[in-house]
């Protein structure tokens, strides 16, 4: 079976852990619990008849208190950049991390997830921002860890991208 490492990168409290919990365990918690360090989960997905074991690296959020080490990114085949639609600052952090990911794992498939679609009314990220990211050649998927919106789609998309690379 093919085994692929996927890393979740983003600012703090954007929903990285919640996305993995929803995808792997079908659980969502309203309570924000900050992540320390790294947590690795696994899930096998079937992509167009091929079974892929996804090793999901949930890495602590990037901010002034915790910086992401490039070593975490090494060896990854896929990278989710998670942005909180309600917090513009998380877009800036996301863009920083895209650069880090491209530099450290140039062959990794990158997908940008704009999370918290359930709070669309409070979004700071505009359609122009999303078009801008798409214009730079990135795949952008809008998700909600809370309502399980487009999460399977996101993980299958990245699995497909990794296989086809």
């Amino acid at each position: 079976m093919i085994k692929k490492k996927i890393i979740m990168l983003g600012s703090f409290a954007v929903g990285k852990t919640s996305l993995i919990h929803q995808f792997v365990h079908s659980i969502f918690s309203e309570k924000y619990q900050t992540s320390i360090g790294v947590k690795i989960d696994q899930k096998i997905v079937n992509v167009d008849g091929t079974e892929v074991n996804l090793l999901l690296w949930d890495i602590h959020g990037q901010d002034d208190y915790q910086k992401i080490k490039p070593a975490y990114i090494m060896g990854s085949s896929g990278c989710f950049i998670v942005i909180d639609g309600t917090r513009r600052a998380s877009l800036d952090v996301g863009i920083e991390l895209i650069e880090m990911a491209q530099k450290t794992a140039p062959n990794a498939a990158i997908i940008i997830l704009i999370n918290k679609f359930d709070l669309k009314d409070e979004w700071d990220i505009t359609d122009d921002d999303i078009d801008n990211l798409k214009g730079q050649g990135f795949d952008v998927i809008i998700t909600s860890a809370k309502t399980n919106y487009a999460i399977d789609d996101a993980f299958h998309s990245i699995a497909r991208k990794m296989i086809n690379k």
């Binding site: 703090f12 924000y32 320390i36 208190y65």
Partner: peptide, 17 residues
């Protein structure tokens, strides 16, 4: 201890934002 300190700092930052 580390998680509690970080949690508090980040919750504060979120509230401020």
């Amino acid at each position: 201890k580390e998680q509690l300190a970080l949690q508090m700092a980040r919750e504060q930052k979120l509230a401020y934002e």
